[in-house]
Design a protein around this nucleic acid. Sequence first.
DNA 1: TTCGTCGGAATGAATGTTCATTCCGCTCTT
DNA 2: AAGAGCGGAATGAACATTCATTCCGACGAA
Lengths: 191, 191
Amino acid sequence: MVLELTEKQEAILDATLELIGERGFHGTPMSAIAEKAGVGAGTIYRYYESKEELINALYVREKQAINAQVLKGYTEELSVRDAVGLMFRNAISARACESARFRFLDQYYNSPFIGDETRRIREQLMSDYVDVIERGICDGEIRDLPLPVVMAMIFGPLAQLSSASQLKDVTLDDELIDQALDAIWRSIGCE
Amino acid sequence: MVLELTEKQEAILDATLELIGERGFHGTPMSAIAEKAGVGAGTIYRYYESKEELINALYVREKQAINAQVLKGYTEELSVRDAVGLMFRNAISARACESARFRFLDQYYNSPFIGDETRRIREQLMSDYVDVIERGICDGEIRDLPLPVVMAMIFGPLAQLSSASQLKDVTLDDELIDQALDAIWRSIGCE
DNA sequence: TTCGTCGGAATGAATGTTCATTCCGCTCTT
DNA sequence: AAGAGCGGAATGAACATTCATTCCGACGAA
């Protein structure tokens, strides 16, 4: 389901992303979005029924974009351990250079503006990761733990480290990332 | 610095917690807070200069309350492994029964409404946990990893599991928690 | 004990502002 | 000229905040 976006739609979404990333939903009136996007206020409503729908559309677009970046370079040939490592590194660097996106996504992860439809899409986007992990469990690279535990041991530290580095509490150099990946693998890997 | 709160102040904070927990900052006008708290709209402003200050005060109160629950039963006699286990379990059960608090805290963790002052207080509240971990590293119970990595390996999975259980994706029974703690310890423990 | 006075806590209607949304007319395109 | 696509001023509702007024308990005088 790849929907074509017009140039204006993209400008609107881009403007929304940036403004909301730094000022929050409150702090960004539609008029500001219109101005930044270089369109009239009314034009936004030609594409999105309401502010809420706009936010949801943006959420989906960003989530997909991030997903693509995280999966970049993945093939089924990779061992699961390498695949996880790849995605982990991808995720970290995406977060570093696309921080506006993440600030937006984090802010809306548990927010009342995310509608049910959007929640479903998010779950669907997680399925790629679930597949990799299940493959790992099947062919014995990952210990036979409940899926939620394995997920938690990978995504938890990832989220935590990323947000710490956002707050300037840490610098995520290669050595640190290797140490983290090694720790993760001790917890879920066989041997 | 324990500041005494009047009965009215507590009523206001309680009302705010509950309303914002379920409807978000937007969805809760000051008038609704006043009504639920059983006070006049103007009264709130006798205690809090603005809606934003009210949110920040609430944030600090809730963060402290949660902290107390998580640390419940902790003494320096405990081995670090047991201490971490205790706090992990405490945190999980706090999240289960105090879900309104967590919904509120999660919602504001990275939000523009949380001011710098409040952020400082939050960091200060983290120091208890940092102390335990540093003790663990010092006397060899925890591998000599960078502090942020160790923190990430404990808090990351915790947060991830809790929020998954909130979304009904998992049930956190004792066995699952034990498995998670075991996995965490494999990653950061010596041996 | 009763009553008058006072201070400050509490109230909630009124205010002024801020927005999301609408609507009308303009401008291209065909 | 018809019609689609836009812009941006206009609208009206929703709110945060204010402030003139009321309420209440304490205290002292008679």
